[in-house]
Design a protein around this nucleic acid. Structure first.
Lengths: 133, 133
DNA sequence: TCTTGACCTTCCAGTCACTGGAACCTCTAT
DNA sequence: ATAGAGGTTCCAGTGACTGGAAGGTCAAGA
């Protein structure tokens, strides 16, 4: 299977797959013509990577998770610790964004949005800081 | 006022302030010794930037907002449009993160997290895609 | 006066995870 | 034979800083 088929199968851009080989996340073999060949194993790994990335795991987390995925004698505690940490980071980001949204949506609502210069949004940026509970 | 005082006043790292000068967001004057001098105007601008950045506006949005902030004959509609667009992006990010969180927290809950290899998280990454409502 | 240490300066490189583009090679169909 | 769709490598750029090296400047104390 060539790279563009692998891209279609996994939903990853071909560029990204090449990048993943570059940083040694996958190791496709090569044809006599130099083209990458993706077998079932590499395709599985790419799919795993695509989904782990969609869950927001960093590349380095993905590398570790992939190693655990392939290690039949892993401890699930190792996986859970990584996932738990990542989950906490996601929660923190959500909280940050909600604080931003709340501040900003108040300001947007207060702004007439006409051709006059008076603007509660600019005043708000001048005066307010983002509240984190 | 020297850069470290400006940093303290605004809460921005000195490095960041230098960077903001580099990309022409602020234009402090210079002392005879070459040190940057921050007057009231530049300090105001830095404070405005720090707060706009805390609300998640991009640097380019900040540049535009700053120009509007300084323009006494602005139309508040211009400000509102930028803020509204940004607000939509924040909402989208929140939705993405909540989808990730929901998927991931289910997987974490299902995982025993002991020394056995059986792991619903890895299985979940293998099988599940992130649901966006 | 000299020295110490805390400032300040510039410039270069690195971060993260790709992405775009140039220049070139290979395969398939007409 | 040629056109077009694939493939390859390599280099540079993204956003918004951040770290670090190498060196200039200043105020206080011995």
């Amino acid at each position: 299977m060539n790279i563009s088929d692998a891209a279609t199968q996994t939903g990853l851009p071909a560029k990204t797959i090449r990048y993943y080989e570059d940083i040694r996340l996958v190791t496709p073999t090569r044809n006599t013509n130099g083209y990458r060949v993706f077998g079932e194993t590499e395709l599985h790994k790419l799919t795993f990577l695509a989904r782990a990335r969609a869950l927001g795991f960093s590349i380095e987390d993905c590398r570790t998770l992939l190693a655990l995925y392939e290690d039949q004698s892993r401890a699930s505690a190792d996986v859970k610790r990584i996932a738990r940490t990542h989950l906490d980071e996601i929660e923190a980001k959500i909280a940050d964004l909600i604080a931003m949204r709340d501040t900003l949506s108040h300001l947007v609502q207060a702004c007439a949005g006409d051709d006059r210069p008076d603007c509660p949004i600019l005043k708000g940026i001048e005066a307010t800081s983002v509240r984190k509970d």
